[in-house]
């Protein structure tokens, strides 16, 4: 009994010792999302920017704040393994450009929204989920959760979940469907991505 009690006590103490570290991590993740949001809004608010420059700015934010390579692999899911090295590298490049072009257009409809950081919590071993709300005039706030992974002392976003809808899962389901309907050929997806990123 005494050994059990001692072990429990030790675990408790170790737990206490680790808590501040966790708290720091979630706090830093919040700061990271907040500063990324600020940067994005700064760009978006400059409505005088020509479309091309705006897209370039968006591309820059995306490549610095998001782990696009990891996201791309997760989106391709089980088909990543089936893809040849050549297909993989072409896919990674096309995927990033596809996302840039898809979302840059949506963000061009910016109308004074602000990002409000709510809470953050650990998720799994490596991730922090930062919950935020996009505050907009004339509408209810939009719930946005950011999945942030820390790696080599830096943070990278690996998923964005809007009102319970994950960008990664949505794209993964869509890509899987495209490939499956073409009899499992990754090339079929590449063809689509090439057309859409031209």
């Amino acid at each position: 009994m005494r050994i059990i009690a001692k072990t429990l006590f030790a675990v408790f103490i170790i737990g206490l010792a680790f808590r501040p570290a966790f708290a720091d991590e979630t706090h830093e993740a919040k700061m990271f999302v907040a500063s990324l949001g600020d940067n994005a809004i700064k760009v978006l608010a400059r409505s005088e920017l020509p479309k091309e420059e705006r897209t370039n700015e968006f591309r820059r934010i995306l490549t610095t704040g998001f782990d696009m390579h990891l996201i791309g692999r997760y989106v391709l899911g089980r088909y990543w393994r089936r893809a040849s090295p050549v297909e993989r590298s072409e896919y990674s490049a096309l995927f990033q450009e596809f996302i840039v072009l898809t979302y840059a257009n949506q963000l061009s409809q910016y109308d004074g929204q602000t990002l409000k950081i709510k809470t953050a919590r650990e998720d799994g071993e490596a991730d922090v989920i930062v919950r935020t709300e996009i505050i907009q005039a004339g509408g209810p706030p939009i719930r946005v959760d950011w999945r942030v992974r820390s790696k080599d002392e830096t943070f990278k976003i690996i998923d964005v979940v809007v009102e319970g809808i994950s960008m990664v899962i949505t794209q993964r389901d869509q890509f899987a469907s495209v490939i499956e309907r073409a009899g499992g050929k990754v090339e079929s997806l590449l063809v689509e991505l090439r057309t859409r990123t031209q």
Binding site: T102, N105, Q106, E163, G164, I165, S166, I169, T170, D173, Q174, F175, A176, S177, V178, R181, L189, E192, L193, R196
Partner: peptide
Amino acid sequence: SSIDFYATVRSLYRQQRQSEIH
């Protein structure tokens, strides 16, 4: 923005329902 609109809507519907259930 969809490559496969049907598959996208299917995915969105499922995720939305899942979110509503929780």
